[in-house]
Amino acid sequence: MANWNEPRPTGLGFGGAPGVAGQGDAAVFDAGLRKHMLSIYNYMTSGILLTGIVAMLFAGSGMAAQVMTGGALRWLIILSPLAIVFAMSFGAQRFSKTTLQAMYWGFATLMGLSLSTVFLVYTGESIAVTFFATAAAFAGLSLYGYTTKKNLSGFGSFLIMGVVGLIVASLLNIWLQSPGLMWAISALGVLIFAGLTAYDTQRLKAEYAYLRGTDFAGKAVILGALTLYLDFINMFQFLLSFLGNRE
Rank of each mutant, 00 (worst) to 15 (best):
G47D: 10
T123E: 13
N3D: 12
K149E: 13
A87M: 14
A136P: 04
W75L: 11
L239Q: 06
L49G: 07
V168R: 00
F86G: 11
G22S: 15
V190S: 14
Y146T: 00
G106A: 12
V85C: 03
K150W: 10
W105L: 12
Y208D: 03
F238A: 08
A87Q: 09
A59I: 10
M1S: 03
Q202P: 10
Y199D: 06
G244C: 12
M44W: 08
G13Y: 08
G52C: 13
A135F: 15
S46T: 15
V20Q: 11
M44K: 08
Y229R: 01
D200L: 03
G224E: 06
A209C: 01
T227P: 01
T147A: 07
L12S: 05
P9E: 02
L228S: 10
I167Y: 09
T134V: 11
S126N: 07
S114N: 11
G106I: 09
Y146H: 08
G162V: 14
L141V: 10
E247A: 09
M44E: 15
E125C: 01
A137Y: 12
A209Y: 01
Q237R: 14
L239N: 09
A102Q: 04
T123C: 10
L191C: 09
G71V: 04
N173T: 06
F242K: 08
G124R: 09
G22E: 04
G180P: 01
I77Y: 03
N245G: 05
A225S: 10
N151L: 03
L204F: 02
T117L: 11
G47Q: 08
Y146M: 12
Y43R: 01
G15L: 03
F138K: 05
M235Y: 08
S178Y: 10
G224M: 06
F238N: 09
L159H: 06
L159N: 03
A135D: 07
L239S: 13
F86S: 12
F119P: 00
A139H: 03
A87L: 15
A108E: 02
L76C: 04
A209T: 01
E6L: 13
G154D: 06
A217S: 11
S170A: 14
G180Y: 03
Q177K: 14
V118Y: 13
N173I: 10
R74L: 08
A133I: 12
F242M: 11
A27V: 09
G145S: 07
T45F: 15
G47E: 06
F95R: 01
L228W: 08
A128L: 15
N42T: 13
